[in-house]
Design a protein around this nucleic acid. Structure first.
Length: 786
DNA sequence: GGACGGTGCATTTTT
DNA sequence: TGCACCGTCC
């Protein structure tokens, strides 16, 4: 293949610097709309085309399937374009359809297929399909290749049964959801049950640690992993088995991570192990033909409640990089040119985010003109707010021929807020879609069918077995199930081990034994043939032989017909999966299903106004954005009001919302809002509104935009550590790298890096024996020793 | 085993 | 307010 550098010439200097960086570590701080996906894809192309890197040596990690898919598509297109020029001296679109298809298929086979591009979870599940049988947990648990992946509801029901049945705890005090949340958090921080208990030596902490122990045993007994373990198990395996780690370390010579601010501790460990082969960052210096390239934006870190930790991004320079100041460093590139929004919108966003203390100094530079003014409206209540929004949408749509319904987005903090908007949109017959809600694979009928398939692949999966043992009804009631379950528990074997034995069934199942045996034989026959027969065939048999479809058809309500449609869609998904993957098995299909959240199959009607939460909007852009419900207690959420760090995260969320807008931005809030039915509360406008530059914003009513809150008001709202601007040692000039310090709890350490500038700084301090901490000198007292 | 009503709960949620 | 879940009753 003759290479051209065409795709490099479309990049700006910073993008180009990032893309052409070859070996060693690089942190790319990529602001909103700065072309980071372009940089990532161009970098992969550059590695392969100009640096002769084997595609099989590249690992690109994303957080969503959508991002992975997008990256693949863009790389395929980029390669096809290069190839078209090289082979035919013509741009791709000038070629005949046949030539284009030929080229794309060549590109797919030669490059795309070899590249590992995917989410942390899908990549880890692939690694585990190779190596999980080499792993043994510290407690001696092990898994086989046919492991099930438990989704959140499987995990929660396991926790629930432990809380109630095994530990006899009050499930109101130990609500399964929050217990599962605590366990998940512990796992993502790399804590074992013992370590969790040590860190939480209360009654509750001890109890949760015990649930955690049972929970891990439960997962193993089901030959199942939850989402957290999917990443944690490879990390532990790499730590306990040098050969396995060495293999993957050699294989992935160039690692790219997207949305690096969203990585959690375990995900970081994984990247760190793969990069350094377990040698540790400090002693690892063999960057020959090897790189770790991470892209992220600390200002868009909005998933800390999911254990994401953006201080990992802030620490990259110290951990992997040269740690030098911005002017001298060779391991940091900032993409600050924004191609998305008008300068008015960017100025407002920049102003807002300046109020955060924990960040890497960065400013979005506009490449577009000033644009329209930003509006702020105060409505009497949520219904009036919705009317304001919808009337603006109608107006703009009517007066601007270039604007379609799909160019509008309404963004809110919480899902319930969609209701008021939907009512008015419906009243005016404006087409809209609400993003979020029930995932395809979370629907009851889909989960039922998948449970059958899971049981076929993984007979130890008792959670799936219990789900479908009597669905559809076959007379195996609670009493029978209890008997079988008790026997299984007594013998410490999976429930299916009892179920598959007809003698046992006859003894234990009593009146239900006849249908239990029929059920057992049916499932056994699928299990026996699963390796030889195609997945679609098994699915077809499940649908027919269980009578599942039959039952829905006979009931025939509208809901049932809908379920039948969904099941048909599932069947198509299996068929499509088979076509697209030559090595398609039931097992790989199930992994794929568990790890995909696609509910965006609404391609029939696309010209619609989009309604979604701010979280869901990350990564998207719209010509016109409405940011609604800007009220103190709603946005920022009342749960964040007393915690400075949480307020900063909400502010980042607001920043994300503002930077979604390309041309026009509308802000709104309501004086009164009905919450949970009756309570009507007079609300204060959001603190974020008070932080915006007034000159940029037109108000529709006099009281729409609040005055900048006095520091005292702000302090009253933030009871926790308060930035104290008059405290000594809060200015960047007070510090320099290498200065020894003393901290009350951590002892003596050395400053290794200074983030930020002026009196808005954070210090990275290394404490021997403890590690690195990022500390804000305004909220924490640190004594300078040198 | 299913229909019914009472009770309690209720951010955000990439996988 | 709206729903998910549970226990009760037939």
């Amino acid at each position: 293949m003759v290479t051209t550098v065409d795709f490099l010439q479309q990049l700006n200097p910073s993008q180009r610097q990032a893309v052409e960086h070859f070996c060693g570590p690089l942190l790319v701080v990529a602001g909103a709309g700065s072309g980071k996906t372009r940089a990532l894809t161009a970098r992969i192309a550059n590695l392969i085309l100009n640096r002769r890197v084997d595609p099989g040596n590249i690992l690109a990690v994303t957080f969503t399937n959508k991002a992975a898919r997008e990256m693949k598509e863009r790389i395929e297109k980029l390669f096809a374009e290069q190839e078209a020029l090289a082979r035919h001296s013509k741009p791709l679109h000038m070629l005949s359809e046949y030539e284009q298809i030929q080229l794309r298929s060549y590109v797919y086979k030669t490059f795309l297929k070899e590249l590992w591009i995917g989410t942390f979870h899908s990549l880890c599940s692939r690694i585990l399909r190779f190596d999980i049988e080499k792993y043994q947990s510290p407690d001696g648990q092990s898994w086989t290749k046919s492991f099930s992946i438990f989704d959140e509801s499987d995990a929660q029901s396991l926790v629930k049964s432990i809380v109630i049945n095994q530990m006899n705890l009050d499930d109101r005090k130990f609500n399964p959801r929050s217990v599962r949340f605590a366990i998940s958090n512990a796992k993502n921080q790399g804590q074992t049950p013992d370590e969790y208990e040590e860190a939480n030596p209360t009654f509750k902490g001890r109890a949760i640690a015990e649930v955690y122990r049972y929970y891990q045993r439960g997962l193993s007994a089901n030959n199942a992993l939850d989402f957290d373990d999917l990443i944690r198990v490879p990390v532990q395996l790499f730590r306990q088995n040098e050969q396995v780690l060495d293999y993957w370390h050699r294989r992935f010579r160039h690692i790219l991570v997207d949305e690096y601010q969203d990585t959690n501790r375990t995900q970081y460990d994984l990247i760190q192990l793969l990069t350094t082969n377990g040698k540790g960052n400090q002693s690892f210096d063999d960057w020959k033909n090897r790189s770790v390239f991470v892209v992220g934006d600390a200002d868009q870190s909005i998933y800390s409640f999911r254990a994401a930790d953006f201080t990992i991004l802030m620490g990259f320079q110290k951990e992997f990089g040269d740690g030098l100041a911005d002017e001298e460093t060779e391991t940091l590139v900032k993409l600050e040119e924004n191609y998305r929004s008008t300068s008015n919108i960017l100025d407002v966003a920049n102003h807002l985010i300046e109020n955060n203390t924990e960040r890497i100094e960065k400013i979005l530079r506009a490449t577009r003109g000033e644009g329209d003014a930003i509006f702020c409206h105060r409505a009497d209540n949520e219904a009036m707010e919705a009317e304001y929004v919808v009337s603006q949408i109608r107006n703009l749509e009517m007066k601007n021929p270039e604007l379609n319904w799909k160019d509008f987005a309404i963004l809110y903090r919480t899902n319930v807020q969609s209701r008021a908007m939907e009512e008015v949109l419906t009243r005016f017959s404006i087409p809209y879609k609400v993003v979020g809600g029930l995932r395809f694979y979370d629907r009851r009928e889909i989960k039922d069918i998948l449970a059958y398939l899971r049981l076929v692949v993984n007979p130890a999966d008792s959670v799936s077995l219990k789900r479908i043992i009597n669905t559809p009804r076959r007379g195996i009631g609670k009493t029978t199930l209890d008997n079988l379950d008790k026997a299984a528990a007594e013998l410490e074997v999976p429930l299916w081990d009892i179920m598959k034995d007809e003698t046992s069934l006859k003894t234990l199942a009593g009146r239900a034994s006849k249908s239990a045996i029929a059920f057992s034989r049916m499932v056994s026959s699928w299990q026996e043939r699963a390796d030889t027969v195609s997945p679609t065939e098994i699915v077809q048999e499940v649908l027919e032989n269980t009578g599942y479809l039959e039952e829905l058809k006979s009931k025939g309500t509208e809901e049932d017909l809908n379920r039948i449609e969904n099941i048909q869609e599932l069947y198509s998904a299996v068929a499509q999966f088979e076509e697209e993957n030559e090595d398609a098995t039931l097992n790989t299909f199930l992994a794929n299903a568990a790890l995909s959240s696609d509910n965006d199959k609404d391609n029939d009607e696309n010209n619609q106004v989009t309604l979604m939460t701010l979280h869901a909007s990350k990564g998207l852009e719209f010509a016109v954005v409405f940011l609604v419900g800007l009220e103190q207690g709603l946005f920022p959420s009342f749960r964040s009001l007393e915690d400075a760090a949480a307020i900063e995260e909400e502010r980042r969320l607001c920043y994300v919302g503002i930077t979604r807008a390309q041309d026009r931005l509308f802000l709104s809030h309501a004086r009164e809002r009905r919450t949970y039915g009756h309570m009507r509360e007079v609300s204060t406008p959001s603190i974020f509104l008070s932080e915006l530059p007034r000159d940029y914003i037109m108000t529709t009513v006099p009281s729409a935009l609040p005055e900048r809150w006095a520091t005292t008001t702000r302090e009253a709202n933030l009871k926790n550590p308060q930035p104290n601007l008059n405290k000594p040692g809060t200015h960047e000039d007070d510090w320099s790298v290498g200065v020894p310090v003393n901290h009350k709890a951590f002892g003596e350490g050395k400053v290794t890096h200074i983030f930020g500038a002026g009196n808005k700084i954070c210090l990275a301090i290394h404490f021997p024996g403890i590690g690195k901490k990022i500390i804000d000198p305004r909220t924490t007292t640190i004594e300078r020793l040198g």
